[in-house]
Amino acid sequence: MSLDEATIRRIATLARIEVPQAELEATAAKLSGILNWIEQLNEVNTDNVAPMSGGTVSGGTDLTLPWRTDVVTDGDQQEMVLANAPEAHAGFFAVPKVVE
């Protein structure tokens, strides 16, 4: 699969990573190279194979999802939650204005 510049722009937008116009071509070439290499997987017959899912590393046979009880054990730590924020205001995180 060879990725064109429009595809790079689309996935860069989805991933919220600015890719300057000047770098589009080189990025497309590099990613296409990786994808072409990855596509050797098409040779593997996976008929009737169930995909692994989530953290189920070996078919999910030896672990089950743990459940927590419905008890409030966390929170009430506004200062620590905001401590690393690039910008905070009156107990809120502040971001460039979102227009709805």
Partner: peptide, 20 residues
């Protein structure tokens, strides 16, 4: 760039521009 770590602080950026 919202809750921790570095943020691009170019003035007048929209939220999506800030992210990117």
């Amino acid at each position: 760039g919202l809750r921790f770590g570095q943020r691009d602080r170019t003035m007048g950026n929209s939220l999506d521009e800030m992210y990117a």
